[in-house]
Computed example of a mutant assay.
Amino acid sequence: MKTAPSTHPQLFAGRDEPILDPDLAIIDAHHHLYDRPTQRYLLDDYLEDAQAGHRIVASVYIETMAFARVDGPDVLRPLGEIEFANGVGAMCASGRYGDIRVCAAIVGHADLRLGDAVAELLDRAMQAAPERFRGVRQVAIEDPTDAPYRFIPVRPPSGVMRSPGFRPAFRHLVERELSFDAAVFHHQLRDVIDLADAFPDAAIVLNHCGHAMAMDMGEEEAAEVFRQHRALMFELARRPRVQCKVGGLGMPFWGFRLEERQDLIGYQELATLWRPFVETAIEAFGVERCMMESNYPPDARSAGFVPAWNALKHIVRGASPDDKAALFHGTAARVYRIELPSSVT
């Protein structure tokens, strides 16, 4: 029997919850696989979660620099992870592991501070995984406090999106019709707005509802963060090529402090806490530009896989069937160019 690391207390929790809306097809728009000293979460682990009751039909693999090459030019090191994820995608496409197409799309890493040198990486990645490589992410979250870095295995570099090489590198993404996953805190959303204005044809995907950073804050401070976050989300949503991933709410940055709990946290409690941010994202961007994500396993700090999806379903339970289809698989299929199974209508 597996034992969840203490930093992910909800990793195996809640799998016996009744499944809400069990026939709703889901493309998990954001998850990771890795093998680290503190946690191993690979294909078998993801399949245990994805086959626990919700109808996950495909997934989008997002980089964490897992399995990066240990030698060769730094700019090309991310190819190792892309090759790894592509292999997992090929394994699952065989049908040997059931009907779930894990890693049907891949978002790899690129250090966009390196400018034009990134072009070779992008071309090599497109050659290595032509059916799955869809874009890149470079985590750019930063905060004036040290609070968030307690939960980040490798501290991201500062000033990523304002570095001299970033926009020259970003131009290569746009020219190749590759997407950019933007991982920032809410107070950095102006950087994403500026980027979208500079590259109006770029496909930008905001991660985790724009991550309202409210760790270690009191009630009044957190309320002010929500007001700022909401205003910035609506401003960003005026850029029509920006999409939004709805999830990542199990991370500690939101200030819910659920990561401190050891008891089972059910979907109704999650839904109550998450609702304002989920509804803000959907209200701002619309269902056609929102896609639901598990952000697993990092979200296991606060939410079991089954309860997390139940919570998202519960929050939007009043939506029409067409709106639910867009949120849970349609937008992700379009943005990441994933062919839906014929059984999904």
Rank of each mutant, 00 (worst) to 15 (best):
K2V: 08
T7C: 11
A13L: 01
R15E: 12
D16E: 15
P18K: 03
P22R: 08
D23C: 13
D28G: 01
D28H: 00
A29N: 00
H31V: 10
H32Q: 05
Q39R: 13
Q39A: 15
D44Q: 02
D44M: 01
Y46W: 14
Q51A: 15
G53D: 09
F67M: 14
G72S: 10
V75L: 14
P78R: 01
L79K: 05
L79W: 01
F84G: 14
G89I: 05
G95T: 04
A104G: 02
R113L: 07
A117W: 03
M126D: 03
F133V: 12
V136M: 01
R137A: 05
V139L: 12
P144N: 09
T145L: 00
D146I: 05
D146V: 08
A147V: 06
V154Q: 14
S158H: 07
V160M: 10
V160K: 04
H172F: 08
E177A: 02
A182T: 10
V184A: 15
L195M: 02
F199K: 00
A202L: 04
A203L: 13
A203C: 13
V205S: 14
M217V: 12
G218T: 01
A223Q: 07
V225N: 08
F226Y: 08
R230G: 09
R230E: 14
L232Y: 10
M233P: 10
A237W: 01
V246T: 06
G250F: 00
G255T: 12
F256L: 04
L258W: 03
D263Q: 07
G266L: 10
G266M: 06
E279K: 07
V287R: 04
Y296M: 08
Y296L: 13
Y296N: 09
L312Q: 09
V316K: 07
S320F: 04
D323R: 11
T331L: 03
A332Q: 00
R334W: 15
Y336H: 06
R337P: 14
I338R: 09
L340P: 13
T345A: 09
